[in-house]
């Protein structure tokens, strides 16, 4: 029983990690409708920034969020403006995928060029301290990630529901043409959404970097899982992404313990494919059906 609870706790903590990385992606994917393969590399950039700031200035890693999130916001805006927006009118959306694949390749290798292949270690600043909760043991940093991702979900929901800008973003996500007719500057909204999505990753980086070694390829560990989470949660659904991340975290953890560590990917992708095929709108989204044929 204790083991079960420990696996459960580990799964939830892993879920929180996936959640905080995926929330930004669901914004970008859901609003701008772009499959951003460079999402993991945004995280990688964020983690290197956290590493540089903590290593050079001696700040606590969590404090770096005030600098890293805005910087990533700019990275996101620039990506949207310079790479995605010119392709928005392209005949098919395939092309954007390749642009983000190219961006991802370029960023990984740029990091390799600057930092080398070795891992970089952000000082943990006490976040690696284990906490005993009943029979289960987790890290302080993991609990902070869980709380932060929940806070991020709530904050973004409030922003999207209650503010003028948030409502404009939702309008664009639901119907681009109609929003345009209503006088919303769609390109500006897209830049904003991409920026906010990337800033979320910057926010995540401040919490992830102290717990995981940073390397040029760290993003590739996350990106496929993040897509799984986003699709599972329902396109553009922030709460759904959080729930989806928890589910994937638990599947990963339980499959790893009870089936075998080498097959956990099969379990995760298997569930992903089942959801895609059986309920392509995701588990938590009613409004968008991806298989819908509109004659």
């Amino acid at each position: 029983m204790d083991t079960f609870l420990q696996v459960l706790a580990s799964g939830l903590m892993l879920g929180a990690l996936f959640a905080i990385v995926s929330i930004g992606l669901t914004l970008i994917f859901g609003i701008v409708k772009v499959v951003n393969f460079a999402h993991g590399e945004f995280l990688m950039i964020g983690m290197y920034l956290v590493y540089l700031i903590t290593a050079k200035l001696g700040l606590h890693p969590l404090v770096t969020v005030v600098a890293v999130a805005p910087l990533l916001f700019l990275v996101g805006v620039a990506t949207q403006r310079l790479i995605i927006q010119p392709l928005m009118s392209a005949r098919d959306d395939h092309i954007q995928i390749f642009a983000t694949v190219g961006l991802s390749t370029a960023l990984i290798n740029l990091a390799l060029l600057i930092f080398g292949a070795d891992i970089a270690n952000t000082p943990p600043g006490g976040l690696r301290m284990p906490i005993q909760i009943g029979p289960a043991r987790v890290l302080l940093g993991q609990v902070i990630i869980l709380l932060a991702s929940a806070a991020l979900v709530i904050g973004l929901q409030l922003f999207l529901q209650r503010t003028q800008t948030g409502r404009a973003i939702r309008a664009v996500a639901q119907n681009r043409a109609a929003a345009q007719l209503m006088g919303i500057n769609v390109n500006r909204i897209y830049m904003l959404a991409f920026g906010i999505g990337a800033a979320c990753v910057g926010f995540a980086a401040a919490m992830v970097a102290p717990l995981y070694p940073t390397s040029p390829t760290i993003g590739t560990y996350f990106v496929l899982t993040a897509f799984v989470v986003v699709v599972l949660g329902g396109l553009g659904s922030i709460g759904g992404a959080f729930a989806g991340a928890m589910i994937i975290g638990l599947i990963d953890s339980f499959a790893g313990f009870y089936i075998g560590s080498d097959l956990r990917e099969v379990a995760v992708f298997g569930v992903f494919l089942l959801i895609l095929i059986l309920k392509p709108s995701g588990l938590f989204s009613e409004r968008l059906n991806l298989s819908h044929v509109s004659p």
Binding site: Q6, L14, L17, T220, Y221, G256, F257, S261, D262, R264
Partner: peptide, 20 residues
């Protein structure tokens, strides 16, 4: 005796297996 993919971000379930 357990394999795992090198590209992973979590080995806690493996640690638990060994501990158990």
């Amino acid at each position: 005796s357990s394999g795992y993919p090198a590209a992973t971000v979590d080995m806690s379930s493996l640690v638990l297996e060994l501990k158990q």
